[in-house]
Amino acid sequence: MRRTLMAAATATLVALLPNTAQATPSYPDPRPLTGQEIIHDPTVMRLKSGGYVAYSTGGIIGTRLSDDGTHWDDAGNAFAEPPSWWYEYNDTGDPWAPDLTYRAGRYWLYYAVSSWGTNHSAIGVATSRTGLPGTWTDHGKVFTSETTDHWNAIDPSIIQADGKLWMSFGSYWTGIRMVELNPETGKAKQNATVHHLATRPDAPYAVEGPEIVKHGRHYYLFASYDACCQGVNSTYKIRVGRSTSIKGPYIDSTGKPMLEGGGDLVLEGHGRYVGTGGQSTFRDKGQDWLAYHYYDAEDEGTPKLGLNKLNWSKNGWPHVA
């Protein structure tokens, strides 16, 4: 009885105290994976033929294949050789941050080519009937940016909304932008308006890697904030805002616009899983999933694939599970 009374008194005291300890978020670990887990900026999809594919930064768009979404095998590269035009943007023909979608009976693979620290950049597109590596036909540039622009044409992400095809993109250089695409060619419409969706208040405007998802009556803009690509020193984290219009404004749950630095925290580093970001989403058997990379603090900061279920609260906000 004495222990019961003490426990009850303690519980009452905790309830009366400010909710400081409980304010610190905790995150579930990613799904346990086996095989080839090393990856960066993953885009994941279950193919119509069965099995899963993940494309990523590294190689000539590195590829991983899986029968069950748990064990992953290295499957080489999307392309045997870099298309010649890639060399306009870097000396090695190195592509970044692919995005995989399916529409009109074909798989569409968008990607970026650039060099570190410049916005002389381009987004390209390729198509395939199967979505498998080695089957892609490149169609050239979709949209470009130059050093005179206030945006950076990398990190593409595609969504269909209101009968139109849209591409969000952006990295630093005042943040996340969006343009309308021609659904026939998959490329930016001529003289397309460049919409502004998200930024940070101060230079270097550390927000990139957008992904827009429709859920219910809202569009949700996920983005990676802070520093990528520094191993265990990375501070990458994933934030989100939402809007009833594809064009925004996107706001977080407190009402702060993403154009003013807002964004609810969805996932950040915890334990061995450092610098979570470079995210994408996919849907499989009625379940939404969040794919991302993290830097493994127990493996010298090696970038690896993270997969978590993406669930939705009653008031419509996403959270990892």
Rank of each mutant, 00 (worst) to 15 (best):
D29F: 01
L165H: 10
P303G: 09
N77G: 01
Y111I: 12
I176S: 04
D202P: 00
R46V: 09
G277R: 10
I251R: 01
D99G: 04
L13E: 05
G255A: 02
R239P: 00
Y89A: 01
P201T: 11
E180I: 10
K247A: 11
I246P: 03
D264V: 02
A7F: 10
P204F: 05
I61D: 03
G175Y: 02
P133G: 03
S224Q: 10
F222E: 13
G216Y: 09
T24V: 15
T63S: 14
Q279L: 05
Y52P: 09
I176P: 01
R106Y: 03
S168R: 11
Y172P: 00
P42D: 12
H195G: 08
G186R: 01
L265F: 01
T148F: 12
A112T: 06
H40M: 10
T57G: 06
A8S: 12
K141H: 04
G62V: 03
P42H: 12
G271K: 12
D296A: 13
M258W: 07
S243D: 08
G170K: 08
T10K: 04
I159S: 04
A291G: 10
L197R: 01
D91Y: 10
P156F: 05
V142A: 10
D41F: 05
G134E: 06
V125I: 11
P98Q: 03
D29T: 13
M45F: 07
Y87R: 07
F143L: 11
A126L: 08
T130Y: 01
W72F: 09
M258C: 04
D264K: 02
V320L: 13
N191R: 13
E180W: 06
H215W: 07
G186V: 09
I238D: 07
A192I: 05
Y172N: 14
D299K: 15
T135L: 11
W96N: 08
A227R: 15
A203V: 15
D202Y: 14
L197Y: 09
R2K: 12
N182W: 10
A203Q: 14
S245Y: 10
S26N: 02
R177A: 02
K189G: 14
R283K: 15
I238E: 14
P201G: 08
W96E: 00
K48S: 02
H319D: 01
Y55Q: 11
L307Y: 01
I61R: 03
T24F: 00
A80R: 11
H40D: 11
E268D: 07
G175I: 08
A153E: 12
L310N: 07
P82V: 02
A23E: 13
P201V: 12
S253G: 03
H195V: 15
A153P: 04
M1S: 14
D296Q: 05
A54T: 04
G76T: 10
R217V: 13
K309A: 15
G241E: 03
I158D: 05
W116C: 03
T174G: 01
E81K: 13
P42L: 14
R217L: 08
Q190I: 13
T193K: 15
Y294E: 04
T12Y: 00
T57I: 08
W317H: 08
W317L: 10
E300I: 12
D94S: 15
K285T: 02
F169H: 11
R200F: 13
M1L: 13
G59N: 14
T4H: 15
